[in-house]
Amino acid sequence: MSENDARFEDGREAPLDLGAWDPDDLSVLSALAQDAVFPASEMSWRAGERRFALLLNRFRWEDRGRERHEPERVQSLLVVENVLRVASQGIDRHDGDLILSLLSVTFEPGEDGTGHVLLTLAGDGAIRLAVEALELRLRDVTRPYVAPSRKVPDHGA
């Protein structure tokens, strides 16, 4: 084996492309999206398409190589389908420079598969999406990059 040969340690995990159609799927997606940050300007609701999307700078919780390199983030799209209404609390939607931090994504079931997707943000902010059915996708759209803080998010004990 020469020094230029690929090693297992050099391998990267594949980009995420996950869907969530039930609460169990959503708990996995939520854990992977926890601590993602995004500017308020990167929220988009297309009422005619019944789609809400966020372009997130997601911390790579799934990265098993953190002991070999600095913590990483990656840009990811979080897309919620079947959206009927969008409401927010604690967010100044006119402040395009406002940076938001995603804490969790949960589902509050209603009748016959309907319900609300709740995006809980740091600082008491929230986005509530009335949905006809639970359908989300989290997809990485860039290569990973070193987290600007060079630290793993810490929620304390």
Rank of each mutant, 00 (worst) to 15 (best):
H69V: 14
E70R: 12
P71V: 08
P71K: 05
E72D: 01
R73G: 05
V74I: 15
V74K: 03
Q75W: 08
Q75K: 14
S76Y: 02
S76P: 02
L77H: 14
L78A: 06
L78V: 02
V79R: 11
V79G: 09
V80D: 01
V80L: 03
V80Q: 02
V80P: 01
V80R: 00
E81W: 03
E81P: 02
E81R: 08
E81C: 05
E81V: 03
N82W: 03
N82K: 02
V83D: 02
V83N: 03
V83R: 04
L84G: 05
L84Y: 07
L84P: 07
R85K: 14
R85H: 14
A87N: 13
S88V: 06
S88W: 06
S88H: 15
S88T: 09
S88L: 10
S88G: 11
S88E: 09
Q89P: 01
Q89L: 03
Q89H: 10
Q89K: 11
G90N: 07
G90D: 10
I91E: 07
I91H: 08
I91A: 08
D92Y: 00
D92K: 00
D92W: 00
D92T: 00
D92M: 00
R93V: 12
R93A: 09
R93S: 12
H94Q: 12
D95H: 00
G96R: 14
G96M: 11
G96A: 14
D97T: 11
L98K: 09
I99T: 15
